[in-house]
Design a protein around this nucleic acid. Structure first.
Lengths: 327, 327
DNA sequence: CTGTTAGCGCTTTCAG
DNA sequence: CTGAAAGCGCTAACAG
């Protein structure tokens, strides 16, 4: 590998001058700039960012830790966050916790070892203690989509309560009263918020509160199918089912089809996927704005990295009506 | 941040001893190991990986450069590759070229600047020159899914020709002769291979070779819709349409529906997506094994990083028949 | 404006 | 088995 010394030697200037030219310092003569540029081009020199960051104590690298890239919602979110980071001159290390606490922790350690400048993450909940230590070291962290209560960390989340309200009002407007709910895994904040909102609003709207209508999944497709199986096995079937995320909606769809009630029981999803439109009948959804969450989450993180004190924000959801609220 | 000196001081040994203990060197006494471990625990010390890699000239970081995480195929591939890297003790920097040559180049430079140990990538084609220089520096590179011809780089690709043969034979078995094809962007190798195979096999099977039946897209949904629009506008509609990837299949589906011919024209996709099963009628597909490609691609890359000479492999495709080949 | 000189935190000889 | 010392490639004072 060619180093800055090689460039200096070839350009006939000192190593310090090369560094200054490369950093765009104004304290350089036109001639130096020109000689250095020539040498760099000739040698195909590319600065070693790791060496530089060691000295500067800043890496210009941020970590993104999400639960599953294969979940379209997170894929979109990660992509938007990455674009924002790139725009502001940072590179991203993307890691997948795979909905697994041990992997989450491993990656967090790795991020620390790499001395990333900040971490944008959707926490799995559980071990608040490790995260606490991490934040204690001064590493800027921002939560996105999910939060861990009791930690003083800025967050960008979606309006789970508002979204749930739109969803239930929509289903009620379509004539449903027995509404089943496929929730997410208990420890995750979005699962908690959505379930609480569901239970609360169900009472407010005077809907039956049969407990078999509420089933827990894990934000993966299979669990959505299993939840619907349990719901139907319980005897008194719902007339509509709301799944707490897109992947579980897919599983629920498969189960409804398998039970031969795809046309009888209406499905709705908290999270919108492009292909819902192509189904017969189509599936209405509450759209989470993954792009906005990724972009704003990263913006908040970089603000924190650069010394700011970002505030938590909530991103609104949007009802995507594919069946007509009155029909 | 606490450093290795702090640990040495607290443990009452020299800095070198701490380093050896941490590296698991056998040349350490039980007592040293024990004192160091205690000091590390007490200080919550985490080695600075960047400092270490500067000295070792190895980072244990590899880069993955794909065209679009939002494409489920690449999301799955990246995930599998990441798992394999993790298993072998490497961390991944994941970057998105966004089907954009400039971004691809920017990220490649970034990877070099970070001195990653290797790069797994799905090239966008075009500027072979930059890649050439990169490889010239000795950076191990492995292509996955796509290749750039004329470069001596190992690759893991899917069996595009075999897949295309299965697809066409399947459609013919279902009674189709006028088969439309929505191809990928011309410069991408998978697009070229699939198109060549399509044209070749169409002749071999004695199918009509009306040029309006072949339309070019860009591996994104909208382009699939536009391609179908053009196909239908040309007068003589096909009885079946084959899309060269899942995202374009989604777009094609929307267009067919919009034109009211969703039930008349059969759609097939080169790339399988879980929700194809939920459509009415369902969509048959050629499944690319993204998991295998990611895993094997990363395995090949790490072999190269560790001094091996991996060979290129082809991963078979699989026909997913959701309609019955004879019906 | 430029060269020289310390380190950043770690690994790795080299003696002992 | 262990300590001391020399860098890895770069940035950032500090004199000039």
């Amino acid at each position: 590998m060619t180093t800055i010394r090689d460039v200096a030697a070839l350009a006939g200037v000192s190593l310090g001058t090369v560094s200054r030219v490369l950093a765009g310092s104004p304290a350089t003569s036109a001639e130096s700039r020109q000689r250095v540029a020539a040498a760099v081009a000739q040698l195909g020199y590319l600065p070693n960012a790791r060496a530089g960051s060691l000295r500067r104590a800043k890496t210009d690298v941020v970590g993104i830790l999400i639960s599953d890239v294969r979940n379209p919602f997170f894929a979109e979110l990660a992509h938007a966050a990455e674009q924002e980071a790139l725009r502001r001159g940072y590179v991203v290390m993307l890691a997948n916790a795979d909905e697994d606490a041990a992997q989450e922790q491993l990656y967090l350690r790795t991020f620390s070892a790499q001395r990333v400048d900040g971490v944008l993450m959707a926490p799995q909940s559980k071990d608040r203690v490790h995260l606490d230590r991490l934040i204690g070291t001064g590493l800027p962290v921002v939560f996105v989509d999910r939060v861990l209560p009791g930690l003083d960390v800025p967050s960008v989340t979606s309006d789970n309560v508002g979204g749930m309200r739109s969803a239930l009002e929509y289903l009620v407007a379509r004539g449903h009263r027995r509404i089943g709910y496929v929730g997410g895994p208990a420890p995750v904040s979005t699962a908690i918020d959505r379930l609480d909102a569901f239970v609360h609003l169900r009472a407010e709207l005077g809907l039956p509160d049969d407990e078999s209508l509420v089933q827990e999944g894990d934000f993966r497709a299979e669990s959505g199918a299993a939840a619907v199986d349990r719901m139907l096995a319980s005897g008194s079937a719902p007339t509509a089912v709301l799944a707490a995320d897109g992947l579980m909606a897919l599983g629920a769809l498969a189960a409804l089809r398998r039970h031969g009630v795809r046309d009888k029981i209406e499905l709705m999803s908290f999270d919108d996927l492009a292909w819902f439109e192509e189904l017969t009948p189509p599936v209405s959804a509450i759209a989470n704005d993954a792009t906005a969450m990724g972009r704003e989450g990263m913006a908040a993180l970089l603000d924190a990295v650069e010394g700011g004190r970002p505030v938590s924000v909530t991103v609104p959801t949007r009802l995507v009506d594919r069946r007509g609220a009155g029909s």
